[in-house]
Design a protein around this nucleic acid. Sequence first.
DNA 1: TTGACGTGTCGGAGAGTTCCGACGTATTGT
DNA 2: ACAATACGTCGGAACTCTCCGACACGTCAA
Lengths: 105, 105
Amino acid sequence: MHGVDVFSALANPIRRDLLVHLRKGPRNVSDLASNFELGRPAISEHLQVLRKAALVREEPRGRERFYHLDPRPLEEVGMWLESFERYWNRRLDDLEVLLNEEDAK
Amino acid sequence: MHGVDVFSALANPIRRDLLVHLRKGPRNVSDLASNFELGRPAISEHLQVLRKAALVREEPRGRERFYHLDPRPLEEVGMWLESFERYWNRRLDDLEVLLNEEDAK
DNA sequence: TTGACGTGTCGGAGAGTTCCGACGTATTGT
DNA sequence: ACAATACGTCGGAACTCTCCGACACGTCAA
C-alpha cells in the first residue's frame, strides 16, 4: 500500500536492469527471471518494490502476470537532476578557483 | 578506496539534501549538520558515502573540512534516465493498446 | 478431475544501513 | 601550555535489505 521512494527503488542494480528489460515490452515474471542468475521469488519481490514505486504496472493474463513499464515516476528523478545541471560547467570554475588558491600558498 | 554506486548514494534523502545544500557553495561539516536533526557523526558518515561515490570533494582548511559538490557522477544517472525518455510519450500509446485489448474481450 | 504451471508471499538467514555516544587527533585561540 | 574546536572513526544497537526454500492459490491442459 504505502509507496516507495523512487530513488530507493533505483538503488538496486537488478531493479534497474528489470526496468531496462521492460523497455522492450511487457514481460511475465518467469521470462524476466530467466535473464538473471537469481531465484524467481527474488525477482517477484523486486517487482513488488518497483510496483510500490509505481514504476511498473501489472496486467494479469490467465495464470501469468505481465509487467508493464511506467516511466512516469522517473520524471521526479529527472527534475531533481536538472536542478544540478547548471553546476555541470560551474564545477570546472570551482576547481580552478581551488587550484589557484593552492598555488597562492 | 572502493567506490560506491551513485544510485545507492542518492537513495538516502539526507544525502540528497546534503548535495542540495552544497549547491550554495562549499560548507564545513558542522555547518552542514546544523541543517539536520541528526548528530554530527551521522552527517560525517553520510559525507563519507558521498565521497566514495565521488559526489563531493573535501578541502581541508585548518581544522575544518570544506566539502565541495562534484556533480560529475550525476551524469551517469542522467544518461541512464535519458535512455528512458523516449518512453515518456510511448507509455500513453501502451496504455491505449492495453485498454483496446481489454475492450475486445 | 487431476496434475503441471505461473505467481505471490511467508519465515528466516545473512548482510548491509543508519545512527549514536565515546574517544582520538589535529588545529586554533588564550 | 592549556582548553576549546572541528573532525574522523570505532563499537554496538536497531533496523532494513536481499535472497532462498517452502507453501498456497488460481489457471490451464488433458
